[in-house]
């Protein structure tokens, strides 16, 4: 395929993905909006007002970046895992596999679809947060970059999950038992300063910690860890996830007999 054909194939996958999650908006865009409003009300207003400042900010201001990031992570992941597994389950992934579309374009297309939903939900949640608090933006470029990279990483993670999944249970196990605990323990609701040295050191193994803190730095200008290190870690995770995903596609594992 030449460059123009590759671009067409990529846009076809992306448009199809966007069409999918907007067609079922009541399942994809509405629930995170409602969940995050509840978080803002309960953790921000009701409980947050009794907690007092954290990291030099009101508690609600502190948790908003983490909650936005949580929404982006969950939705990027959910989009790719459900879309790709659904295509595999119904066998219409074969439409793509028999076509000359290169594997890296297939991966890029699904990842872009996950990013599109992640950003869409992130934007909705950000707008909703403005009803509860004033959002200070320290560095817009860094904020956007971190959201984008995080969304890419979790879209790739969703892809890997989808390739290995054999049934619908398999696509909910990772989000329930891995993603949610890592997100909650990734500094969304608290500063690392609250942890003992042992748990603080252990928390550094959690990739979500880097994303939440880098994003929080972009918005508030405070972070528990160095931002350049956090960015480097995110990029490293992306590179590993990208090449592993590509390997899965190239080898045809669980996709071709």
């Amino acid at each position: 395929m030449n460059g123009q054909e590759i671009l067409t194939a990529f846009l076809t996958i992306l448009i199809k993905e966007v069409r999918r999650f907007t067609r079922i908006w009541a399942q994809t865009l509405l629930p995170p909006a409602i969940t995050m409003v509840l978080y803002f009300v309960i953790f921000g207003r009701l409980i947050g007002s009794r907690i007092g400042p954290m990291g030099g900010f009101d508690y609600i201001q502190f948790v908003v970046p983490g909650l936005i990031m949580m929404a982006v992570i969950n939705n990027s992941y959910a989009n790719v895992v459900s879309s790709f597994f659904g295509a595999k389950f119904q066998h219409h992934i074969e439409e793509l596999l028999v076509s000359p579309t290169p594997n890296w374009v297939i991966l890029l297309g699904f990842t872009a679809g996950g990013v599109a939903r992640g950003l869409c939900v992130g934007l909705i949640v950000t707008v909703l947060s403005l009803f509860f608090t004033r959002l200070h933006v320290q560095d817009i470029g860094l904020t956007v970059l971190v959201v984008l990279l995080t969304s890419v990483l979790f879209s790739l993670a969703g892809f890997i999950n989808a390739v290995f999944a054999d049934n619908f249970d398999d696509i909910s196990i990772i989000p329930t038992f891995v993603l949610t605990p890592l997100t909650y323990l990734g500094g969304v609701f608290y500063s690392m300063d609250l942890l003992s040295p042992f748990w603080r050191a252990l928390a550094h193994l959690n990739p979500i910690l880097y994303m939440v803190n880098a994003f929080r730095y972009g918005l508030l200008g405070v972070s528990d860890i160095r931002v350049d290190f956090a960015l480097a870690m995110i990029v490293l995770f992306i590179v590993v996830a990208w090449f592993y995903s590509l390997y899965l596609l190239e080898s045809g594992k669980r996709l071709r007999q």
């Binding site: 590759i6 194939a9 846009l11 076809t12 067609r23 219409h92 076509s99 579309t101």
Partner: peptide
Amino acid sequence: PQEFNFNNFEKVGDILATQAGYYGLP
């Protein structure tokens, strides 16, 4: 193929246009 392998929830026209896109057709 022997078995139906299209997305049941997609529109008929979209299924064809999407397949054309996978082959790089403008």
